[in-house]
Nucleic acid binder design. Sequence first.
DNA 1: AGACCCGTTGTTAACGTTCACAGTCTTGCC
DNA 2: GGCAAGACTGTGAACGTTAACAACGGGTCT
Lengths: 338, 338
Amino acid sequence: MGSTRDHRPPVMADVAREAGVSHQTVSRVLNEHPNVRGETRARVLEAIGKLGYRRNLVARALVTKHSRTLGVVSFDTTLYGPASTVYGIEQAARAAGYFVSIVSLKSIDRSGVRDALDYLADQGVDGIVVVAPQRSAAEALADLPVGAPTVAVEGGEAGDVSVVCVDQVEGGRLATQHLLSLGHETVWHVRGPSDWLEAEGRVAGWRSALALAGREAPRPLAGDWSPRSGYEAGRSLASMKDVTAVFVANDQMALGVLRAFTEREVRVPDRVSVVGFDDIPESEFFSPPLTTIRQDFGAVGRHSIEVLLRQIEGQGPHVRERLVVPPSFVSRASTARP
Amino acid sequence: MGSTRDHRPPVMADVAREAGVSHQTVSRVLNEHPNVRGETRARVLEAIGKLGYRRNLVARALVTKHSRTLGVVSFDTTLYGPASTVYGIEQAARAAGYFVSIVSLKSIDRSGVRDALDYLADQGVDGIVVVAPQRSAAEALADLPVGAPTVAVEGGEAGDVSVVCVDQVEGGRLATQHLLSLGHETVWHVRGPSDWLEAEGRVAGWRSALALAGREAPRPLAGDWSPRSGYEAGRSLASMKDVTAVFVANDQMALGVLRAFTEREVRVPDRVSVVGFDDIPESEFFSPPLTTIRQDFGAVGRHSIEVLLRQIEGQGPHVRERLVVPPSFVSRASTARP
DNA sequence: AGACCCGTTGTTAACGTTCACAGTCTTGCC
DNA sequence: GGCAAGACTGTGAACGTTAACAACGGGTCT
């Protein structure tokens, strides 16, 4: 104990003095440079421990031009999907030794995305993950001026950037085929908002499965992902006599549909079968437990970081990757033969 | 057009040269120093625009010792509560011109919290918000070695740091009093994990309301916040004959309870009344729609930033604040007279 | 023996900003 | 006309790190 000044946190020079070496040698020890004698290294390490030295990452970032910080732009991290994705991203990033700086947009429009990108670029992030489920976000990304490597999550055919996404079309197909295979004549659909790529993908999958089976696609009902919109769609569906199977574009809306059916005493799955999408933790305990399509958000987050790091750390000519995570079918009690 | 080198982003010196002033004057314009002639300012601004100059925040942080970045430590941001809180924090922080760096812990133990704090301190954050709903987290905070100002959210009597929280005791009381006022003899409770302060607070509120009414408190059933644990508690409750009212410590578990009751054909609210906690977006569409206690997570997030900024920006002798956000009662269809 | 390489260490100069201080040019006032 | 006060601007030195290069010593090869 008893360093010269305890009121200022120690810097590299203090450690160097303590260990009787130059500050550059301290730097070498910290950066695990191979050419440092074992005994010297030990002395430096001891001095570091004694002084409680912590390297100043800001100074380091200034000279290396690498902040070891990744930026994440997301839309409404209150929703289960984005929240889980961001969680996966953060975990993977930290495991790789990166910090994560987050910007949550209230609405994703062109300028909002652009501002967020600028904001992060200002901070000097090494790379950016944009969770861009809406078409407008994907488009904003297309004319991106950002220097930093970027990966889009759920970003459709987003311009020049790499994309990691769940195969929504396949998910829609899975749900619809399951219902058809049970013997339903056709399958109705409560869709998500039209500016969401995920909503479009699920519609496309639904249509293609119906087409493959030679069935006419009924007019889809519009929802906005919220339970309330599902509830309203459910009331419409309940009043139609020929509805026996419904594919709802997410579990929250499916909950609303179930609620509407319960109120109108439309039994599920006896009279109508329902399939959801996402597999939120609650859906297993809906009444009845919801058959749904699971998205592995954690995997999406992890993959997006892998792709991004490959782009940051790997050299080579900026390959644009596209990684698709398959959804999976989860069978529960909300579907049955007609 | 045609600056000397387009391949390197422009720095202050480039702007200075372009505008025919010194770099210091550019700095003054950027920092809105009053003593700059209007015409000079205009010239500098024009040069900035022409060159597309953006100030390097890393270099700035090095000299000012302020990164304008706030750290957030949270536990499982997949859950609705933490996710909403973090969202509120991020929005408020950005509005105040701060970046937000997030660390999501998988498990909150002493060393985990400490590592996260170190990690953020290394990065040079100006302040830290710890969303510490678990006792272990709060304790870890008690012996905090961090130099940065810190605020705990839901942190109980967390050592020396300021705390922002929802009045859980009041919430538990509200729920219980509502059930008692309907005429129920007593109220059962499905509680959260015992190492969560929120769970303890709700239990305390429940007990105090029962005590005030001169009723015996039944033995609480243990849950872990998950719908499944609620389901299991619900199965137990369904097999007891004298249960007419249940206060469940969160909405997810309440969903599980409702599911168990439905399976056993225990009618809600006809035979048993149920009250939840949180008011997640789904609970309005449970069957039946859930009467619950709403927590304003957004307000908690905003307040925590206010308190933190007051601590960072305000001088003065580190006052330890404690800010309590009141919960509110939301009446729906899951409760009735016995 | 001399040249050369390599492991190890130190010295000096960036990185791009702000701070402290020293100028210069007005302006007002006696 | 001189002088001080203030507005405005410039110069140099930090901030704490890494990069580039030089220097030294000992070993190997010819």
